[in-house]
Design a protein around this nucleic acid. Structure first.
Ligand SMILES: [Zn+2]
Ligand SMILES: [Zn+2]
Ligand SMILES: [Zn+2]
Ligand SMILES: [Zn+2]
Lengths: 135, 135
DNA sequence: TTAAAACTATAAAGCTACTATAATGTCAAT
DNA sequence: ATTGACATTATAGTAGCTTTATAGTTTTAA
């Protein structure tokens, strides 16, 4: 199959496929005489794997790491599990940070009602005065 | 004061200050004969304002917008409050998305105990099989 | 006095994960 | 013969800086 078909199959843009190839996440496919890329079912599976990893928020580097484990299937899977654990704790700390941020923003917002002049805006004053908690 | 002192005062790198100037967030300061930038207290306040906005997660574009409001202090502050409301809802949807992601990752992680071979890793299998919920 | 250390300047590239654009080439159908 | 859909490469743009390179200036110490 050609690049357009693969793209449609997996739900990606063709440029994204070339990008993954360039980044070393997808093996370079064979080429037709005219230079067109020819993909196999394997490529489809590899691409789908990448996409599902991306949906899970894994970085391309992490995906690359996972692929290296897949290439060596008789090692213990500890590293895989650890990678996921690390990623989970990363996501959790993001959540925590965002929740703290939300709290700060909400209290800032509460310091102003509408129908003031910018000069007297509680929000702008709150930012300018800088009585913000660190982190 | 020169750029290094300002940087230390606010807790930023000098390059960041030049970057903000280039982006139009800090007014270009006067220069000494040797070309060195000379900053005033006003610049310090402006820079501190930018930094506090950044800590609140506001984008440079949003900061630019806030600055434009500050330059016109007798308008109603509705736009400021609305900007913050939008930002809060943006943060909230990020939190929601990350929480859903965390759930997915945790259940994926639960599908593997340690001490398996990569071949039999529940995590890799879970990603490959692709029984993932959309979004 | 002079040499090194510290500071400043500009310009350009790197980071992430694509997305978009441009200029060109190939192929099937009208 | 020409349109249209598809392919190719190369390059630039996105956000918010950080890093690097190269060069000039000021301060400090020997
Ligand atoms: Zn991660
Ligand atoms: Zn207000
Ligand atoms: Zn925002
Ligand atoms: Zn496992």
């Amino acid at each position: 199959m050609r690049i357009g078909q693969l793209a449609q199959l997996v739900g990606v843009e063709t440029q994204t496929i070339r990008f993954y190839e360039q980044q070393g996440l997808l093996p370079p496919p064979d080429r037709q005489d005219n230079g067109y890329r020819v993909y196999t079912k394997k490529h489809g599976e590899g691409l789908a794997f990448i996409r599902r990893c991306r949906i899970l928020g894994l970085s391309l580097a992490e995906i690359h790491e996972l692929q290296s484990y897949q290439d060596d299937p008789h090692q213990p899977c500890t590293a895989v599990n650890t990678l996921l654990d690390d990623h989970i704790s990363h996501v959790r700390s993001q959540i925590t940070a965002l929740q703290a941020l939300e709290k700060q923003l909400v209290s800032l917002r509460a310091s102003c009602n509408d129908d003031r002049e910018v000069e007297a805006c509680g929000v702008l004053a709150g930012i300018s005065e800088g009585n913000m908690h660190q982190q």
